[in-house]
Nucleic acid binder design. Structure first.
Length: 259
DNA sequence: ATGGTAGACCTTCTA
């Protein structure tokens, strides 16, 4: 079973690129982030034509997440618990049905920049909420994949120029510690389990020729419960997609599970 | 030295 996560940076601006990639990769499940549209503006038909079931948690202009699956989606939940006062559409989860069901979440974790502002506090509070919810899901002791744009550079090896991220919310010690705490409740970083080599970047900024200079970072992750990690067979970063026409600044990250 | 691009949308915000 092939599961993908991809921050598309506007689904409607990216639809031709995204469809071209779906044709080529045929993922069983895809987690999309940064749709930048409300539910009604999501291009359902383009994906339903491929036989995908779609669950969308959209928002005007900013954020927005979706789950696409060839198998039916059940128990669809939008938003993290304890979300009063939080109107950002950054989380959707569902159970992908089948002989061996798996719960999958599409996550767009807050960026948090600039540091020293309420935006950074919001990031850390959101990570705390995510950890508490993930702990509750782990108690089911079932296959679970938390996939998305976590907006955290876990280690120095996950950035081409770590120094240039020193003052950035994505590489703050507090952000990295919160990401470690999340993993330490019992989640496995799929990339590190299978590959783990430096340079496995998933994002290159549009600015300052970051792609041409390979100034990338690894911020798109898949965190797996033990029941999913035990069935992890492969990971792949679709780096070449960054060089396609009208690319997102993120590329797809794909994991293969023996489910 | 603080550059540079992309998307949504109306003027600036977010990334």
């Amino acid at each position: 079973m092939r599961l993908a996560t991809w921050n598309v940076n506007s689904i409607n601006a990216r639809i031709e690129t995204v469809i071209a990639w779906f044709r080529e990769t045929q993922p069983d499940v895809a987690c999309l982030q940064e749709l930048k549209c409300v539910d009604e503006k999501f291009p359902f038909e383009a994906f339903e034509a491929f036989g995908y079931n779609v669950a969308v948690h959209g928002q005007k202009t900013y954020n927005g997440v979706a789950l696409l699956s060839k198998q039916p989606l059940e128990d669809i939940r939008s938003g993290l618990p304890d979300g009063e006062g939080d109107d950002h559409a950054r989380y959707i989860e569902a159970v992908v049905s089948g002989p061996r069901p798996i719960r999958v979440a599409s996550i767009y974790l807050p960026n948090g920049n600039p540091i020293g502002t309420p935006k950074f506090d919001y990031k850390l509070a959101w990570m705390d909420r995510l950890q508490r919810h993930a702990a509750a899901l782990l108690a089911y002791e079932e296959p679970l994949a938390l996939m998305g744009d976590f907006n955290v550079i876990p280690e120095e090896m996950d950035a081409d120029k770590p120094q240039s991220w020193a003052d950035d919310a994505l590489f703050q010690p507090q952000s990295r510690a919160a990401f470690r705490r999340l993993k330490n409740i019992g989640l496995t970083d799929a990339y590190m389990q299978i590959d783990g080599s430096p340079g496995g970047y998933t994002f290159w900024d549009y600015q300052a020729g970051a792609w041409q200079r390979n100034h990338g970072i690894r911020i798109d992750h898949a965190l797996l419960s033990p029941q999913a990690a035990d069935r992890l067979k492969g990971v792949a970063i679709h780096k070449d997609v960054r060089s396609w026409e009208k690319p997102s600044d993120h590329v797809p990250f794909v994991i293969e599970l023996d489910l």
